[in-house]
């Protein structure tokens, strides 16, 4: 059999509703693809071994680690990043509003991952308890906030989203 597979591939992905077509190396991580090929640097990289959660994005609506994901695997799929969270240039998503209001961020580095995992979680659990929120974000490390205000923000966002 001749060599199977390729080291490069053309992929088509839709990111935040925008279609992209790029030729990429098979080994290129999705995190690097989003950040350095598409310039969507809102997705952060903290460990590249799937623990810190800073690189969390939504893949077909579900939260995944973009550092544990090859860009070629996203071919034909839809990705959502923090840049796609706000409904418009002038408005913020309820999660963003709540994080701002409750001081749910300090250095802001873990924040995009927190927002993305919470977006998916709240869609499935619109009325969560504090404990459920803590568990939902337990795969996202924050070194600044001690989590308390992130939890407050998530509870507040859930309430905002239920009201709207």
């Amino acid at each position: 059999m001749t060599a199977v597979g390729t080291e490069r591939r053309v992929i088509r992905v839709v990111v935040n509703g925008v279609p992209y077509e790029r030729e990429v190396e098979a080994r290129l991580l999705l995190s690097d693809f989003l950040r350095h090929e598409l310039g969507l640097t809102g997705t952060h990289v903290g460990c590249e071994h799937g623990v810190c959660g800073a690189c969390t994005v939504l893949f077909d609506g579900e939260p995944v680690r973009s550092c544990l994901f090859l860009a070629v695997q996203a071919d034909g799929h839809a990705i959502e990043t923090v840049e796609g969270l706000a409904p418009s240039e002038s408005e913020l998503h309820p999660l963003q509003l709540a994080f701002w209001e409750k001081h749910g961020l300090q250095c802001g580095y873990c924040t995009p991952g927190m927002l993305m995992v919470l977006k998916a979680f709240l869609a499935e659990h619109p009325n969560p308890t504090e404990e459920e929120i803590r568990e939902a974000i337990s795969g996202n490390l924050c070194r600044c906030t001690g989590y308390q205000n992130i939890v407050e923000a998530a509870l507040s966002a859930a309430q905002l989203m239920r009201q709207s």
Partner: peptide, 21 residues
């Protein structure tokens, strides 16, 4: 008072060193 830093950081418009290409 709510932080002036936050709107940028919440919308992915922060500028960290590795973001600079």
């Amino acid at each position: 008072i709510k932080r002036a830093e936050d709107p940028r950081l919440l919308t992915g418009r922060g500028r960290y060193t590795d973001d600079i290409d």
